[in-house]
Simulated scan of single mutants.
Amino acid sequence: MALVLVTGASSGLGRDTAEALAGQGHDVVAHVRDPARLTGGGETGWWKGVVTGDLAEVDEIRDVARQAAEFGRFDTVIHNAGVLNSPEQVTVNTVAPYLLTALMDKPARLIYLSSSMHRTGSTDLRRLTAGSASYDDTKLWVTALALACASRWEGTTSHAVDPGWVPTRMGGAGASDDLAAGHQTQTWLATHHDVTPHTGGYWYHRRTQTPHSAARDEAFQARLVQALEHHTGVPLD
């Protein structure tokens, strides 16, 4: 039985992931921005616990890390929360995963939600603080962060997952990918040991793919981590 934190678990892929893991008997801690969206149906019996906070606000990200620490060291943290076409997308999609990774005890497994759109993201890290970053940029950066973490700490593996373009609230009703398959890769990575590569994979439907070259570029990874450290004032190590 694993202890798993899933961010953005009130709906969509995060909710599907959390429910699948809980259904397998794992202890799931669900992160939600608005607890009313999760508890309105009396469904908290699914979860080991709930942590709350708006991942668009740095102070609240820090508080989410504090709340999560009360559960002890997680076996897996799934950085699922994300927003599209929002002025908050840099903070939610890239800064929040970075800060939570830096502030929390390192789990055995880290999983970061990417997107096929990361392949058209920019390596211009001035966009990180200039307010000009696109969704594609933020997903390239979080993919590079995932791969930067892959061999950084002994006992911690890290992967990036493209869930596909699925018909969630974010993806829209016209999305062409399989909603049922959208959470299965991260659910599998969260608990299985027979994973190849053991760490540092970019996954789509339980198969590895080749990400944007910058995501695997150690020089770019180092520049990204340095930029995030400078932006947040929090070192990764």
Results as ranks from 00 to 15, higher is better:
residue 169 R to C: 02
residue 199 T to Q: 11
residue 49 G to F: 08
residue 33 R to A: 05
residue 185 T to G: 11
residue 56 A to Q: 10
residue 50 V to M: 09
residue 149 C to I: 00
residue 139 K to W: 10
residue 133 A to N: 11
residue 41 G to C: 03
residue 156 T to V: 06
residue 204 Y to W: 14
residue 207 R to W: 01
residue 118 H to I: 08
residue 147 L to N: 03
residue 233 G to K: 03
residue 176 S to L: 13
residue 176 S to G: 10
residue 173 A to E: 14
residue 7 T to K: 03
residue 63 D to C: 01
residue 217 D to P: 13
residue 224 L to G: 02
residue 182 G to R: 04
residue 182 G to L: 02
residue 13 L to Y: 01
residue 76 T to S: 12
residue 113 L to Q: 13
residue 37 R to V: 12
residue 34 D to T: 09
residue 85 N to C: 03
residue 53 G to Q: 04
residue 12 G to F: 01
residue 27 D to N: 03
residue 72 G to A: 12
residue 112 Y to G: 00
residue 200 G to W: 01
residue 123 T to N: 04
residue 78 I to N: 02
residue 167 P to K: 08
residue 94 T to I: 11
residue 22 A to D: 05
residue 35 P to F: 04
residue 122 S to C: 09
residue 61 I to E: 11
residue 67 Q to W: 11
residue 22 A to H: 04
residue 71 F to G: 07
residue 195 V to N: 06
residue 235 P to K: 04
residue 181 A to F: 03
residue 97 P to T: 08
residue 138 T to K: 01
residue 38 L to S: 13
residue 117 M to L: 15
residue 217 D to T: 10
residue 31 H to V: 13
residue 81 A to I: 06
residue 132 S to A: 14
residue 50 V to Q: 10
residue 24 Q to N: 06
residue 120 T to N: 14
residue 19 E to Y: 01
residue 226 Q to L: 02
residue 171 G to I: 12
residue 46 W to V: 13
residue 73 R to D: 06
residue 192 H to R: 15
residue 155 G to S: 09
residue 85 N to L: 13
residue 29 V to S: 04
residue 64 V to M: 03
residue 16 D to Y: 03
residue 190 A to L: 02
residue 71 F to L: 10
residue 81 A to W: 00
residue 79 H to V: 08
residue 112 Y to H: 13
residue 179 L to R: 12
residue 115 S to H: 03
residue 235 P to C: 06
residue 114 S to L: 09
residue 120 T to E: 15
residue 26 H to Y: 09
residue 212 H to Q: 09
residue 171 G to L: 11
residue 187 T to A: 15
residue 115 S to A: 06
residue 195 V to F: 05
residue 37 R to A: 13
residue 176 S to F: 09
residue 208 T to S: 08
residue 161 V to W: 04
residue 137 D to N: 07
residue 153 W to F: 15
residue 123 T to I: 12
residue 26 H to T: 09
residue 43 E to W: 07
residue 79 H to C: 07
residue 164 G to E: 06
residue 76 T to D: 05
residue 51 V to I: 12
residue 127 R to G: 15
residue 232 T to D: 10
residue 97 P to K: 01
residue 83 V to Y: 00
residue 172 G to V: 11
residue 125 L to H: 10
residue 112 Y to M: 01
residue 18 A to T: 04
residue 160 A to V: 02
residue 35 P to K: 12
residue 178 D to A: 10
residue 100 L to W: 00
residue 50 V to W: 13
residue 198 H to S: 14
residue 36 A to Y: 07
residue 131 G to Y: 03
residue 74 F to R: 09
residue 187 T to I: 07
residue 127 R to T: 08
residue 210 T to P: 06
residue 225 V to F: 01
residue 150 A to F: 05
residue 46 W to K: 11
residue 171 G to A: 10
residue 88 E to G: 00
residue 16 D to T: 06
residue 210 T to W: 07
residue 23 G to S: 06
residue 161 V to Y: 06
residue 86 S to V: 03
residue 50 V to A: 07
residue 114 S to F: 05
residue 197 P to D: 11
residue 27 D to E: 14
residue 177 D to P: 10
residue 138 T to W: 01
residue 113 L to M: 15
residue 74 F to H: 10
residue 198 H to T: 14
residue 148 A to M: 02
residue 204 Y to M: 12
residue 152 R to Y: 01
residue 38 L to M: 15
residue 186 Q to R: 14
residue 108 A to V: 06
residue 54 D to N: 15
residue 129 T to R: 14
residue 195 V to W: 04
residue 203 W to F: 12
residue 99 L to Q: 00
